[in-house]
């Protein structure tokens, strides 16, 4: 999986490409750990090319959501495929993370 993070001031665009699973989640966690320390980070995660996420991905999205709530920032996930959206719906994540 490829992770690209573009920063402009407080705005962070995280572009995900590929499969977020048990193999790729540790690297993604490394990539987003610095973002979890930033005060008032406005994070947008572009999921247009995110093909798949397992519970390993979900736990990281929840960690990110918890961190922005604590740090006064925001998290929006956009362009999710129907299949990935279903995983968010089943687990109730659609209610705790903003999806556009």
């Amino acid at each position: 999986m490829n992770v690209t993070i573009n920063q402009k001031g407080h705005a962070y665009e995280v572009v995900l490409e590929g499969r977020l699973d048990t193999t790729t989640a540790p690297k993604f966690q490394e990539d987003i750990t610095p973002l979890m320390q930033v005060s008032k980070a406005e994070i947008i995660v572009d999921c247009a090319k995110l093909e798949y996420t397992s519970s390993q991905g979900l736990r990281l999205f929840l960690m990110l959501q918890k961190s922005v709530l604590k740090n006064g920032g925001s998290l929006v996930m956009k362009n999710m495929s129907a299949a990935v959206k279903e995983v968010f719906d089943i687990t109730g994540f659609s209610n705790i993370i903003t999806i556009q």
Binding site: S54, S55, R59, M63, L69, G92, I96
Partner: peptide, 24 residues
């Protein structure tokens, strides 16, 4: 099964794997 009605602050990290397996 996890309580999927909790807020982000109250949701524990993890514990979704087998739940997803059952649901899908």
């Amino acid at each position: 099964d996890p309580d999927i009605t909790l807020s982000a602050e109250d949701r524990p990290i993890g514990g979704l794997g087998i739940f997803l397996c059952k649901k899908l």
